[in-house]
Every structure is written in structure tokens, then in C-alpha cells.
Simulated scan of single mutants.
Amino acid sequence: MGDLPGLGPLLGRAVGAAPQALDAVLDRAVLPGFTRVGLGVRRRLPGWPADPSPGALDGHAVAVTGASSGLGRRTVLDLAALGARVHLVVRDVAKGDRVAEEVRAAAGREDAARVWRCDVADLDSVRAFAEAFLDDGGPLRGLVHNAGALPPRRTASPQGHELTAALHVLGPVLMTESLLPSLSTGAGRVVLVSSGGMYTQRLPVEDPEYSQGPYSGSVAYARSKRGQVELLPRLARRWGGHGVSVHATHPGWARTPGLDDSLPGFSRALRPVLRTDAEGADTTVWLLAADPPPGSGRFWHDRRPRPTAVVPGTDPTEADRARYWRWAADAVGLTP
């Protein structure tokens, strides 16, 4: 990436500072850390993890939900560039087909991409997709839960769950559970694409379906992303028994069609420093291709594990996490 306004002074002040300390300051300051500036500084600090080697994913397959636009589109392009065969899991097959053709042309391989239809918020659709994939999809190196939405008003999924809870928590848990036979054949890696917005919210233990009080799409989105992160330790233990690791990452503030549509004022105000889609997808791709594999059950940003709570009062108790997991497991028909 090219030089950015303010990057030179930041690097100048970094001289003599401990890299980890500077990294932590960027993270806590949010504005520089979540933008292109933060990534630009971190890439220049000692200890930045190496990029995946060319061909790191040759012979491997990865499935990505929400792959028809934004970070999902960039993720499948970058995974295919490393040699992966990518499965685009999308609601709109026509849009998915267009991205798949883009992937094939860029990779120079006709078998580089395949499109599957699935509405991740619809648990019946998830079950049908998983059944079809197990019949004909083959083994998976990775599964990326990228599909997301920020609804302006409370919306129910086909099973009656609040939409963000269904799309960001319930659907991904059910899909991963259902695809474990494919993932466990090759030390599979699961990545939940979360959001730094989750830092602002507590785990919604009392009201996971957001059925009480005035509804805010941005709050619902952040609550569900908090839920993803707080489930990591349990999911790591549960899926680790199958040889499958699980990670969550937040992409920082990246300019995508979804951000432009859902938060247009925010997108316009920060446009000069918003990350590109490739910069937003960087850690997701790295987590899937890194060798040796990163440790399971952690929350990542810019290729480093991050704390899961920084705002006072947002760190849940173990009892809260257990209660939230029981709600999620019950909703998708699992034994906690």
C-alpha cells in the first residue's frame, strides 16, 4: 500500500518504541488502528508475520459465505490466488456466478470456483446446503463465515429468530457443525469475520433475540458480533476434538458496498482512511494459509490476537458465556 496522510509522523514517533506497545496503542486508539493508517504502521513494525508463500493453498478448498460482494468477493479472489479452489456460498446465485467467473479468469483455472446457494440466516437452507455439500463438495481446508447484514429494523428469520443473531451466530454454528465431516479430513480452519463494533456491546444474555426495547440495527449487529467472539473458547473445544480450529477476526474499517449502504455517513466521513477490500480481508486469508497454523479460539486483527473486551463492563462472566451458548445450541438443535 502507498503512503498515507499522517503515516510518516506516526512512524517517526514509533522510533525507539517497543513494537508491541505501539501496536497496543493503535488498537486502543481505534481511529488510527482500525484504518489504513494502523495497518500501514503495523506492516512496518518488527515481527509482522510473513505473508503466505505462493501456492500455499494448492490442492486445498475453502468455502466462503457472502462471497458475491465486498470482503467476501475479495477473500475468494485472494484465496484462489494462493492456489485454493473456492466455494462461493451465496443467496444470489447470479451475483455469485459473476464473481466465480472473475475468480476463474484471475486464477487461470476453470475449476477455481464453484457456486452454492444458501441463505445463512435460514437454518433450513443451511441444512440443505450442508447436505448437498457433503454429497458432492469434497474435503475443506477452511470455512469462512463472512455473510453479514445490518438491518434498519427488527427482522425475523424464517425460523423466527432476530436476523443478525440468526445470520452471524446461529447459521454459522449450524453450518460448521454440519460440515465437520468435510472439515475434519484435513485439519480444517474456521474463520468468523466479526467486527470491531462488538467492543461497544455486552453479551446479550438476557435478550439474545433483541425482542425488548427500541431496536437499533447497529446495536443488534454489534451484539451478534460480540456473541461470535464470546463463543470462541467453547467452539474451539467442541470442534477441536474433530481436528478443526476456529478463529474470529475483525477487518477494521474497510470500504465495502455493505458499509456504504448501511452507514453512509460514516463511510463518507472516513473515506480517505478506510481500508481497501484487500486490506480488510488480509487477516482472514492469512489465518487460512499461515504455516504453522495459528492457535485456535482467539480473536484476531491485523495478524495478531487481540483482547476481547476493552470497554469497562463489557467482559462477560463464564456463566454468561455458558448461558449464551445454551441459547445458541438449543436454537439450532445441538446438545450443549
Rank of each mutant, 00 (worst) to 15 (best):
M1C: 12
P5K: 14
P5G: 14
P5M: 14
L7G: 14
L7M: 15
L11N: 13
G12V: 14
R13C: 14
R13N: 13
R13I: 13
V15C: 15
G16R: 09
A17R: 15
A18P: 15
P19D: 11
Q20A: 15
L22V: 15
L26N: 10
R28Q: 15
A29N: 13
F34H: 12
L39W: 12
P49G: 00
P49W: 05
P52E: 00
P54F: 08
D58R: 08
A63K: 01
G66F: 02
G66T: 01
T75W: 06
T75P: 05
V76A: 04
G83F: 04
L88A: 01
V89P: 03
V93M: 02
R104E: 00
R114D: 10
R114T: 12
L123T: 00
D124H: 11
A128P: 02
F129P: 02
A132Q: 08
D136M: 08
P139T: 05
G142I: 00
A166S: 13
L167S: 12
T176I: 09
L180E: 07
S182T: 08
S182E: 05
T185M: 11
A187Q: 14
V190P: 01
M198K: 13
L203E: 09
L203F: 11
Y210F: 13
G213M: 09
Y215L: 00
G217H: 08
S224V: 00
K225A: 07
R226G: 06
G227C: 07
Q228P: 01
V229H: 01
L235W: 07
W239A: 02
H242N: 10
P251A: 09
G252E: 04
R275L: 05
T283R: 00
W286E: 02
G297M: 02
H301L: 06
R304E: 04
P305H: 04
T314I: 07
D320P: 07
W325Y: 08
A328F: 05
V332A: 05
V332K: 04
G333Q: 07
G333K: 02
P336K: 09
